[in-house]
Amino acid sequence: MNVLEPRLAKLALKGDQQAFAELVDLYQDKLFHMAYRMLNSRQEAEDVVQDTFLRVYKNLDRYDDTLKFSTWIYRIATNLCIDRLRKRRPTYSLDAESNDHEGLDGYSMIPGDNRTPESEMLLSDTQRIIHAAIASLPPKYKTVMTLRYMQDLSLQEIGDVLEMPVTTIKTRVHRGREFLRKKLEHKL
């Protein structure tokens, strides 16, 4: 087990801001990419990273040494992402006419910079198809698969992050993979 991170956490708890800055340096980009892949929005991903570190800082005294630091911080970040996904408003159709503004439809309400999630990303056509397939996974599989594919986390660690038994994670990874296989069968 990595001893550096618990030690940094202990120093930070004693008020050493430099130690905390090192923890931020270690995890900020990893967390950003994880959050971005879950939320597909840069703004939201940055917010999640910020919230995660704030929570980590406030709860340093509750950090339990028996847990890997990475597991703990991913757990906090994942939960924040899942909260945001839950809170998201149902999507509205752009073609529907707005009730409040006559003659205006959804397109006219989009801000000028045109940063809808899809256009934010640089993906090849094949990757878009795969991304759409992953996005269409039922939520409980989506989280597991996202963690499985992007981090070098073992199934056990994913279980620790999501606070689920490893057998559940295994089943979900298997089903999720089969789901993707069926979706992509004729497209790969």
């Binding site: 990419h33 971005y36 892949r37 597909n40 840069r42 991903a45 256009s119 934010e120 990303m121 640089l122 993906l123 090849s124 990757q127 795969i130 991304h131 992953i134 996202t146 594919y149 992007m150």
Partner: peptide
């Protein structure tokens, strides 16, 4: 794909 997902 997930590796490639990055903000433009």
């Amino acid at each position: 794909t997930l590796e490639a997902i990055k903000p433009a």
